[in-house]
Design a protein around this nucleic acid. Structure first.
Lengths: 194, 194
DNA sequence: GTAAAATGTAAGTAAGCGCTAACATAATAT
DNA sequence: ATATTATGTTAGCGCTTACTTACATTTTAC
């Protein structure tokens, strides 16, 4: 069975599940969106549920913001935070379908959804916390709980992303995104530096 | 047709919709949870969709944190922020079912969901921003964008609430909630005061 | 105490769902 | 060229769903 077909179905699944939810998407519809017969879908995936699960695990891994970390040492604190925030928001945008699924299917697949959350957020939380800890060691940052700091920082942006992406009226969006980010960072910097 | 019955059905609807989503909840099941016959449900609501809509609009109004505002003037900045954060988190907890629905049914009812969001978050955002503006006028806070500040502040807590409530493993929860809140506020205060 | 209003019971309809069976056709490999 | 593999077509099964019909029973109001 061709790999291309499989990918086409997985892609269509991602799109539809994120748009209409798991129960709201039908196998017929997914097959049509993938440009294959419904039966072909079932030849590749034993069930709708298996398709969903494979789609999730296919997309949930995180090519990791961790690669950013070494580069940060050579930047000012402000630039570093800006870089992290920017990358984080970009990454959320790239994965907006998955985030949407995460929000909407939590009642159906708590385990799967938590898996997404943790591969997505947990690692960057830890990474950021260790960055803070390092700067505290070098006496640049004051003494605060690095985990709480990371949570506060990413929380501001995650929440901002969600309201921009899913909850705001179109007219209100993008008016001053960049500026809001700078304001967030500004507050955060003053709140954490020595 | 009795008002009690109507309420019982609306309550059961809230519980089930939040637990299983709109499509995941059946009218039979809702009726059973309400302790009435399925037919009675349809005698009170023309359709499942109408029930959903009425349930949403019944619960979405916000008895307003606005009443807090006058009292804040007599508190220290820190105490005021703590009070706001506490009340905000309490309010989110009280309405956790609705928040869950907001997350999960956004693909079905974007308009309704945005309505919830705006009655819920928008007003407190504005209230908080005006509080900041006031303190800036009295030269207690430095010059920053009050709307962005309000967004950052509530965003930290909203995001924290969501991860606590929906995404964290039970074991991790409640270990240091109070402390995390204090850390958030601490960062925020240092970030915004003169 | 009786009429009216509210609810219950039971059976069923029409439609849509996930999924399968049977067979035909196209693409690929050797 | 032929065997194999991947897909298409069509029809349908068994089940569940939202919602209805017809009628019996309970609750309420005056």
């Amino acid at each position: 069975m061709s790999k291309d077909t499989r990918e086409k179905i997985l892609d269509a699944g991602l799109r539809l599940f994120s748009k209409k939810g798991y129960l709201g998407s039908t196998t017929k519809e997914i097959a049509k969106a993938a440009g294959v017969a419904e039966l072909t879908l079932f030849r590749h995936f034993a069930s709708k549920e298996k398709l969903f699960e494979e789609m999730i695990s296919r997309h949930s891994f995180l090519p990791a913001l961790k690669v950013l970390l070494p580069g940060l040492k050579d930047m000012s604190y402000e630039d570093a935070l800006f870089e992290i925030a920017k990358r984080f928001l970009e990454r959320l945008s790239e994965r907006r379908e998955l985030i949407r699924i995460m929000h909407s299917e939590i009642y159906l697949y708590p385990a799967k959804v938590k898996e997404i959350y943790h591969t997505f957020i947990d690692e960057i939380l830890r990474t950021l916390a260790s960055y803070f800890r390092d700067l505290q060691g070098r006496n640049i940052l004051r003494d605060f709980n690095p985990e709480a700091g990371a949570r506060a920082f990413l929380g501001m942006f995650f929440s901002f992303f969600n309201s921009q992406e899913f909850l705001m009226r179109k007219e209100v969006r993008n008016i001053d995104t960049e500026k809001v980010i700078r304001d967030f960072i500004d507050i955060f910097i003053r709140g954490t530096m020595k």
